[in-house]
Amino acid sequence: MLELRPNCECCDRDLSPSADDVYICSFECTWCADCVRSFPAGACPNCAGTLQLRPSRAPHKLVTAPGSTLRVVSPDCRPAATLPS
């Protein structure tokens, strides 16, 4: 079962477990759509893996299978090209 992490690892934005615009890689690195647009080639900045839309979990299933509460933040996720000089 997917962890459904509660935040974007790049900007730390809260992400609902039922959101349909969240991206993950095969390691479940979790990103919001806005941050994914800044990643070169749309690849995961942690592992260079392919990012896919994360499946959402139906609200009634969240009662017995809630999303994770563990927040993961990768402070170096932004490519150097997108950082202000």
Rank of each mutant, 00 (worst) to 15 (best):
S38T: 14
V72C: 06
L2M: 10
H60A: 14
E9Y: 00
L51E: 08
Y23M: 13
C8S: 00
D34Y: 11
K61V: 13
P59E: 14
D76I: 00
P55S: 13
P84K: 05
S26P: 00
L62Q: 15
C25K: 02
T30H: 02
L62S: 12
A19T: 09
W31Q: 04
D12H: 09
S74Y: 11
C10V: 02
C11R: 03
R57E: 03
C77I: 01
F27K: 11
S74F: 12
E3K: 14
V63W: 03
A19K: 02
G49K: 00
P17A: 03
A48I: 04
R78F: 13
P79Q: 15
E3A: 11
V36L: 06
C29R: 06
C25S: 08
P17L: 08
R5N: 03
A33V: 02
D14M: 03
L15F: 13
A43N: 06
T69M: 09
E3V: 08
D21R: 09
L15T: 02
N7I: 01
G42K: 10
A81Q: 12
K61R: 15
P59F: 07
G42W: 04
Y23T: 12
S26G: 11
D76Q: 08
C77F: 13
R57F: 01
C10F: 09
L15V: 09
T64S: 15
S56Q: 09
S16Q: 08
C29Q: 07
P79C: 14
L4S: 05
N46A: 15
D76S: 13
L83V: 11
P79M: 13
R57V: 15
A33H: 07
A41E: 15
H60E: 15
E3T: 07
W31H: 07
L15H: 02
L53H: 02
L15C: 00
A41I: 06
T64N: 10
T30P: 04
